[in-house]
Design a protein around this nucleic acid. Structure first.
Lengths: 335, 335
DNA sequence: CTGAAAGCGCTAACAG
DNA sequence: CTGTTAGCGCTTTCAG
């Protein structure tokens, strides 16, 4: 019945420090000293205590411990879906960054959750700070997080909490230069969203090209998925048969477009140059490897974790701080 | 100085239930009732308490809570590296599975850790059960985990704790049939490891083919990485120019081999059929999409989480239990 | 070197 | 409906 995690049979309750103290014939403090490698304990006593602890399968309660020295810190990381290759790169970096600072990471995934509102509310109860991409409005986030320091990644128009922005404009300029230098004359943007409402990064490409005197038509895919990229690629080829370069919303869509190009027998980069965005590792698995606007995820994670921990320590205000991390052009074989 | 997570200035300590009780002019118990939506409290009182709580940026301590009702449960998940596309699929499934049962997941990554021994020791202190792929011997695991229920995924020859096995033999037979039906006469295995020491799944392919009267030569790649797959693919083409089918150690190596085939101008599946193993989503991003021996990660996660939680509840022995999940042939375009 | 006392923040159980 | 009491398991004083 009672949960236990030791060696004896089902039904027995977990051993406490008192059980160990009695078994070893010492006081609780002495058990503490033995378990935590503290000084001021005779070697023989220590061994006796540790033996008793092992015998009873004693494990110090993290709650008892946490209560006394507020030393057990946890960041809650909210991602949409780890199956989307974007998020593991972030999660990996956040976990490393947090670990370097002695924090744990609890992971929450909104995509598969029935009710992400309560998912994040629960997370906020278990974590000391929350980082990530919750699909919540500012108002919702404020309610749900109830004062827990919060850093939104890729904050955009949101304002509640802190944010880490990823800036694409400079790199987009570099990409435009790169494509034009290679002789592109009829580039097309494969954006995601609603036709007529370019994404921020899509608009950035259009602007960069316009600044260079090139007008770029847009084809819009329905979503950020692979299949949507395939469909978008086919639609783009149909609408612009003479296209010679494609900039896509992100690397996933780019992979879809690449598949469409392959199936249509279009050589990349020979006849069409293709670029993605995000700098996913995924881009190295396809042929040709994908040119992309990459962002250093370690820098993003470092920045987000640092900001959140600063908020926790009261050194960074809970509102209004934004960090910025720039994309950079990563030229691979597809352009 | 003191860590805080509320609204007031740096240096103030976090508000406790007592602060709120005093501010609202009620007892602690009433604060508890208000915070936890418990019955037996007048609406007006509740509102007053919640207002005071908000004012003081009060957040109930998870340690105080955890101490009283052992209700806050956490599984520790050990993966090698989230940047490897294999692990996110597992992690995603484990997080979902755990969440369905009301457990949290703390993530630990061994690849980037300086000392994974202490990494896992720390994890075992924060978690009630541990699941994953720790690169630890049985002896090390036993020491480090100190009695925490432990389920190793893809247990193989290890014996400490419980395990979830992934069985590949049946599916490998199906793959052999599939390749032979399509007319393959000179299949080659692209294995990973040391030459002369086939991996379990490599051996399974050799055996399946031998059972069908086909002797399969092996080429061995150095590691399970993409670049190693490229190198292995090139070596394989050099050693067996007339190959007409390749089974690879896993999907990542298969992607590498596919790149090598592409660059060599070898049509897939026209001239060479290519299969991977693991069933990664990644296989759908390349052209042609990769045939693979897939394993249902949700089933693996469900099984591992269920077993670990059963151990925690004392309903499953801490040692010697193994679950099995079978691979299945997933035919896509590359064969 | 060891023990006794006190308290971390919270909630269940029992009064009132 | 509200308050009081007791105790969860641990570590930090402070005495011996």
């Amino acid at each position: 019945m009672t949960p236990r995690a030791g060696g004896a049979g089902p039904g027995s309750r977990p051993a406490t420090i008192i059980d160990v103290a009695e078994a070893a014939g010492v006081s609780r403090q002495t058990v503490t000293r033995a378990m935590n490698d503290m000084p001021g304990i005779k070697v023989a006593t220590k061994e006796r205590v540790l033996a008793a602890a092992k015998e009873l399968a004693y494990r110090p309660s993290r709650f008892g411990r946490g209560l006394v020295g507020h030393t057990q810190r946890t960041v809650g990381l909210v991602v949409d879906d780890l199956m989307n290759p974007y998020y593991p790169q972030l999660a990996s970096a956040v976990v490393s960054s947090a670990r370097d600072r002695g924090w744990n990471v609890i992971l929450a995934q909104t995509a598969k959750a029935a009710d992400q509102y309560s998912l994040i509310a629960d997370l906020a109860k278990q974590a000391d700070v929350v980082i990530g991409y919750p699909a919540l409005t500012d108002t919702q986030a404020q309610e749900v997080l109830a004062g827990v320091p919060f850093v939104r990644i890729d904050m955009g128009e949101y304002t509640y909490g802190g944010g880490v922005e990823m800036e694409v404009d400079d790199a987009m300029g570099d990409l435009a230069d790169h494509l034009l230098e290679r002789g592109s004359q009829r580039p097309v943007l494969l954006d995601v969203g609603l036709p007529g409402f370019p994404s921020a990064r899509g608009q950035s490409f259009l602007t960069a090209m316009a600044d260079r005197g090139v007008r770029v038509p847009t084809v819009t895919a329905a979503s950020k998925s692979l299949s949507s990229g395939v469909a978008g690629g086919n639609a783009l080829l149909a609408a612009h048969p003479d296209v010679d370069a494609i900039m896509t919303f992100n690397d996933i869509v780019a992979c879809g477009a690449l598949k469409a190009l392959h199936e249509a027998g279009v050589d990349v980069p020979g006849r069409v140059r293709l670029a993605g965005c995000d700098g996913l590792n995924l881009g190295r698995f396809v042929s040709p490897e994908l040119t992309t606007l990459a962002v250093d995820m370690n820098a993003v994670a470092e920045s987000a974790v640092g900001m959140a921990l600063g908020m926790y320590d009261g050194e960074v205000p809970l509102q209004g701080v934004r960090a910025r991390v720039a994309h950079h052009l990563l030229v691979r074989a597809s352009t």
